[in-house]
Simulated assay, not measured.
Amino acid sequence: MAGHTDNEIVIEAPMDLVWDMTNDIGSWTKLFSEYSESTVLGERDGTIVFRLALHPDENGKVWSWVSARTPDAATRTVRSQRIETGSFKYMWIFWEYLEVEGGVRMRWVQDFEMKPQAPVGDEAMRERLDRNTPVQMRLIKDRIERVARGAGVPG
């Protein structure tokens, strides 16, 4: 059995701003609240390889991984997958941006499977992602809309 999530939010800002800010991996520690590190490791043929690290968990452990991300500005889509999978057998993420009345609909579809020895199973991870993804999307929405209004991104 595999896990699947599908979340979206409308950001009241121009497409180019939404696209540029959400694809600037080096600034993700200011865009997302969960990341303590977002480091681009390299780029080849339009695919960006990068490391993400979370803030320490309740036991002081810092979870980190390497992913590859391929944005396609022509279709306003991004395909990403974990290279260092950790507890995941695989994790694929599809980002889609669509201009709608009032802004840009940003959608994230996550498909994954947990390894048998992972601390949580597919359903528990799906529930965790479905709780956290909307939180992160609302933060991103707020931060991009602040920039769109000329207020800047909080430090």
Rank of each mutant, 00 (worst) to 15 (best):
3 G>A: 02
4 H>G: 02
6 D>H: 05
6 D>L: 01
9 I>A: 09
9 I>L: 07
15 M>S: 11
18 V>Q: 09
18 V>E: 12
31 L>W: 04
38 S>R: 02
39 T>S: 15
40 V>A: 14
41 L>W: 09
41 L>Y: 08
41 L>C: 08
42 G>H: 06
45 D>M: 05
45 D>P: 01
51 R>P: 13
53 A>I: 01
58 E>H: 06
62 V>E: 11
62 V>H: 09
64 S>G: 10
68 A>Q: 11
71 P>H: 03
71 P>N: 09
72 D>Y: 00
75 T>P: 08
75 T>R: 14
76 R>M: 03
78 V>L: 04
79 R>D: 13
81 Q>V: 02
81 Q>Y: 09
89 K>F: 01
89 K>A: 05
90 Y>V: 00
91 M>N: 14
92 W>M: 06
93 I>H: 06
95 W>S: 11
95 W>I: 00
96 E>W: 01
98 L>W: 00
101 E>I: 00
111 D>I: 00
114 M>S: 07
114 M>N: 06
116 P>H: 07
116 P>M: 06
117 Q>V: 04
118 A>G: 12
119 P>L: 04
120 V>G: 07
125 M>R: 09
130 D>S: 10
131 R>G: 11
132 N>Y: 00
136 Q>W: 02
137 M>L: 15
142 D>F: 03
142 D>I: 01
145 E>C: 04
146 R>G: 08
146 R>I: 01
151 A>N: 13
151 A>R: 10
152 G>L: 00
155 G>I: 05
